[in-house]
Simulated assay, not measured.
Amino acid sequence: MTTPIQDTILSQLAAVAPGKSIDPMSVAKAIQPERWQRLLGHIRTDVIELARQGQIVILRHNKPADPETFRGVYRLRLRQDGDPTSFEKVADEGGDEGGED
């Protein structure tokens, strides 16, 4: 079962050309035009859930991002063939050894 936010996300993604993405702000504004900023945290939560389910992809710098660790500005698109289904955990594994900068 999906939430109203998830329904709006999936509806907006279905309306764009394959491979195109949407901005989470457009989802918020579609749901609550006057106070859309208040929805952004809820949208992020639902975006993460949809990405975990494999229905959508979270994009950072136009590349798929790990739904568990992404930060900052992001966009959304429907999953495509070739999109990763898992992400390597690289943060803080291996300590400070071999410090390449």
Score class of each variant (00 low, 15 high):
residue 1 M to G: 14
residue 82 G to E: 02
residue 97 E to I: 05
residue 28 A to I: 12
residue 25 M to N: 13
residue 64 P to V: 09
residue 82 G to F: 10
residue 34 E to I: 07
residue 43 I to S: 03
residue 92 D to P: 06
residue 87 F to C: 07
residue 13 L to C: 11
residue 37 Q to C: 03
residue 66 D to H: 03
residue 8 T to D: 13
residue 28 A to M: 05
residue 49 E to C: 02
residue 62 N to I: 02
residue 101 D to N: 06
residue 78 L to E: 07
residue 74 Y to P: 03
residue 24 P to Q: 06
residue 2 T to P: 12
residue 61 H to G: 04
residue 23 D to I: 10
residue 53 Q to G: 07
residue 70 F to G: 08
residue 69 T to E: 14
residue 63 K to I: 01
residue 101 D to G: 08
residue 44 R to V: 00
residue 100 E to S: 11
residue 49 E to P: 01
residue 74 Y to I: 04
residue 75 R to Y: 03
residue 83 D to Y: 03
residue 72 G to C: 07
residue 81 D to W: 08
residue 33 P to V: 03
residue 98 G to S: 04
residue 88 E to C: 04
residue 46 D to M: 01
residue 4 P to E: 11
residue 64 P to N: 02
residue 101 D to R: 07
residue 23 D to G: 00
residue 65 A to I: 08
residue 40 L to E: 02
residue 95 G to D: 10
residue 86 S to I: 04
residue 39 L to G: 07
residue 55 Q to T: 08
residue 20 K to Y: 14
residue 20 K to W: 15
residue 45 T to Q: 04
residue 90 V to P: 02
residue 67 P to E: 08
residue 23 D to V: 11
residue 100 E to F: 15
residue 24 P to V: 00
residue 77 R to Q: 04
residue 77 R to C: 06
residue 77 R to P: 15
residue 3 T to D: 06
residue 89 K to T: 11
residue 33 P to E: 13
residue 96 D to N: 07
residue 73 V to N: 11
residue 43 I to N: 06
residue 54 G to W: 03
residue 61 H to V: 03
residue 37 Q to A: 14
residue 61 H to P: 03
residue 59 L to M: 09
residue 50 L to T: 00
residue 63 K to C: 07
residue 69 T to Q: 14
residue 14 A to S: 08
residue 4 P to F: 11
residue 85 T to V: 13
residue 92 D to H: 14
residue 55 Q to I: 07
residue 85 T to E: 11
residue 6 Q to R: 14
residue 85 T to A: 06
residue 73 V to H: 13
residue 52 R to P: 00
residue 61 H to N: 15
residue 43 I to E: 02
residue 91 A to K: 12
residue 45 T to W: 05
residue 90 V to L: 14
residue 94 G to P: 00
residue 76 L to Q: 06
residue 16 V to N: 09
residue 92 D to A: 13
residue 95 G to C: 01
residue 26 S to F: 12
residue 51 A to N: 01
residue 6 Q to P: 06
residue 21 S to W: 09
residue 77 R to V: 03
residue 19 G to E: 10
residue 42 H to N: 15
residue 24 P to G: 00
residue 55 Q to L: 15
residue 12 Q to K: 15
residue 20 K to G: 09
residue 35 R to T: 13
residue 30 A to R: 04
residue 37 Q to E: 14
residue 14 A to K: 08
residue 30 A to E: 11
residue 26 S to I: 12
residue 36 W to Q: 08
residue 40 L to P: 01
residue 53 Q to C: 12
residue 98 G to N: 02
residue 35 R to Y: 14
residue 5 I to V: 15
residue 74 Y to F: 15
residue 8 T to I: 09
residue 62 N to C: 10
residue 51 A to G: 01
residue 33 P to D: 05
residue 17 A to Y: 13
residue 69 T to C: 01
residue 72 G to K: 08
residue 49 E to T: 12
residue 21 S to K: 02
residue 95 G to I: 03
residue 100 E to V: 12
residue 38 R to P: 02
residue 46 D to N: 15
residue 42 H to C: 10
residue 88 E to P: 10
residue 49 E to Y: 08
residue 15 A to C: 00
residue 31 I to G: 04
residue 93 E to A: 08
residue 68 E to S: 10
residue 58 I to A: 05
residue 46 D to S: 09
residue 55 Q to C: 00
residue 56 I to C: 00
residue 25 M to G: 05
residue 31 I to R: 05
residue 80 Q to T: 03
residue 12 Q to F: 09
